[in-house]
C-alpha cells in the first residue's frame, strides 16, 4: 500500500496494464522522455521501451488516426492528449472513425483505444488550456466517456478502460491531479483479461461521495471536492444533509443512481464546470424530470460554467462553480 495522488494512481494503472498485456502501447506528445507534461506516463519509457511508449509528432488527428489503425491491427493504444483544447484537431477521427468502427465492421473490429484528456480549469493555465469538452463526446454514439475523481477510481477506471473493447474518452480533471493522496493498493483491483466484463461495471456506475437524504447534488470530476465542501457547509449552516453523487461515467449515465438520489431527496442540483447549455446537467435534469417528477419538491437547478469561452486565468474563478455558488444553488433548490 502506498499513498498516491491521481497522477500516481494513473501511472500505476498504466504500469499494470502494460505489464499485463504487451498489446498496450502509449502514444502522445511528450509522453515518453518527459513522462507527459503532467508526468502521468513517467517511467514507462524506461520500463517498456520506445516501441511501446512513443513521443509522437505534434498532430492530434495523426495520433488518434494512427491509434485507430493500431487498434485495427490488434494493439491497445492509450493516447494522451496534452491539454483538453488540443483534442479538437483530432475530433474528426474520434467522431467519424473511432466511434463508428464497431458499427461499420459488424461489431468485429471495435476501435479499442483509450483517449486520455486532462481537462478543466482551476490550475491558472494559459489561454486555451482549460476547456471542459466532455459533452461533445457524450453526444457521439459509440463512445464511452468517463471521469474519475479519486486516485482509486482513476486507477480502477484506467485499467477498465484499457480492457473495454470500445473507445473510451478518459477525462482527467487536472485540478485534482495532485489535490490529495489516498491509499492505492499495488494489487490489481480486479483480474485482468479473463473476459468477465468487469470493465462494464467499473465504467458505468456512479458512486455516492457523501451520504444524505435531503438534497441530491449530482456532479463529476473537478467539482466533486467543491460540492462535498458545499454539502458540509449546508450541514453546518442549516442542518441539511446533501447526498453527493459522483457520476464517474458520463456515458452511459447511471440513471438508476441519479433517479434514486433525486427521488429519495425530492430535491436535486447538478454541478459541472462545462458550459451550461446542452451540458451534462441538462441531460441529468431531463432524466430526473422524466422519471421522478412526482417525487420532486422543486425543479432541478444547474450550477455550471457559463456559455462563454473559458476565460484567461485572472477571471477563471468568476467562471468556475465555487463552493459559494454551489451552496447558493443548493439554497435555491431547498427554498423553492
Amino acid at each position: 500500500m502506498s499513498q498516491r495522488t491521481m497522477v500516481e494512481a494513473l501511472n500505476l494503472a498504466l504500469h499494470q496494464a502494460m505489464e499485463h498485456d504487451d498489446r498496450v502501447v502509449l502514444l502522445g506528445e511528450d509522453v515518453a522522455k518527459t513522462g507527459g507534461v503532467f508526468r502521468v506516463t513517467a517511467g514507462l519509457l524506461d520500463r517498456f521501451g520506445e516501441e511501446r511508449v512513443v513521443d509522437t509528432p505534434l498532430a492530434e488527428a495523426g495520433i488518434i488516426g494512427s491509434a485507430i489503425g493500431m487498434a485495427v491491427y490488434g494493439l491497445l493504444p492509450v493516447v494522451e492528449i496534452q491539454f483538453d483544447v488540443f483534442v479538437y484537431p483530432g475530433f474528426e477521427q474520434i467522431v467519424t472513425h473511432a466511434a463508428r468502427y464497431a458499427w461499420r465492421t459488424k461489431g468485429e473490429v471495435p476501435a479499442s483505444l483509450v483517449i486520455r484528456i486532462p481537462f478543466g480549469g482551476g490550475v491558472r493555465a494559459p489561454e486555451l488550456h482549460s476547456d471542459s469538452p466532455e459533452a461533445l463526446f457524450v453526444h457521439v454514439p459509440g463512445l464511452k466517456v468517463v471521469c474519475p475523481t479519486t486516485p482509486n477510481d482513476a486507477r480502477d477506471m484506467m485499467l477498465a478502460a484499457i480492457e473495454d473493447p470500445d473507445p473510451v474518452i478518459f477525462m482527467e480533471p487536472k485540478r485534482i491531479y495532485r489535490a490529495g493522496r489516498e491509499e492505492v493498493s499495488d494489487e490489481l483491483p480486479f483480474a485482468l483479461g479473463n473476459g468477465d466484463g468487469r470493465y462494464n461495471e467499473v465504467l458505468s456506475k456512479a458512486r455516492v461521495a457523501r451520504e444524505g437524504d435531503d438534497l441530491a447534488i449530482i456532479t463529476y470530476g473537478p467539482t466533486v471536492p467543491l460540492t462535498i465542501q458545499a454539502a458540509e457547509r449546508l450541514a453546518q449552516e442549516r442542518g441539511v444533509q446533501a447526498r453527493v453523487v459522483d457520476l464517474r461515467s458520463l456515458y452511459p449515465l447511471d440513471v438508476d443512481a441519479i433517479v434514486e438520489a433525486a427521488s429519495t431527496c425530492g430535491r436535486a442540483l447538478v454541478v459541472h464546470e462545462a458550459p451550461r447549455t446542452a451540458g451534462l446537467g441538462a441531460e441529468v435534469s431531463a432524466l430526473i424530470h422524466e422519471r421522478a417528477i412526482l417525487d420532486l419538491e422543486a425543479p432541478v437547478i444547474r450550477v455550471t460554467g457559463y456559455d462563454v469561452p473559458f476565460p484567461q486565468f485572472a477571471n477563471e474563478d468568476d467562471y468556475l462553480p465555487s463552493v459559494d455558488r454551489i451552496t447558493a444553488g443548493a439554497n435555491k433548490v431547498l427554498d423553492f
Binding site: A61, G62, I64, G65, S66, A67, I68, G69, M70, A71, V72, Y73, G74, L75, P77, E92, Q93, T96, H97, Y101, R104, T105, K106, E108, V109
Partner: peptide, 28 residues
C-alpha cells in the same frame, strides 16, 4: 464486412481521414 477477414478496411467516406489508419496499422 469484417476487415480482418479480408485485410480490407471499411470504405472511407470523409476525405483522407483513412490515411492515418493505414499508417497506424503498418506501425502496429
Amino acid at each position: 464486412w469484417n476487415p480482418r477477414e479480408h485485410r480490407v478496411a471499411p470504405i472511407c467516406v470523409p476525405i483522407a481521414t483513412h490515411l492515418p489508419h493505414a499508417v497506424g496499422l503498418a506501425w502496429a
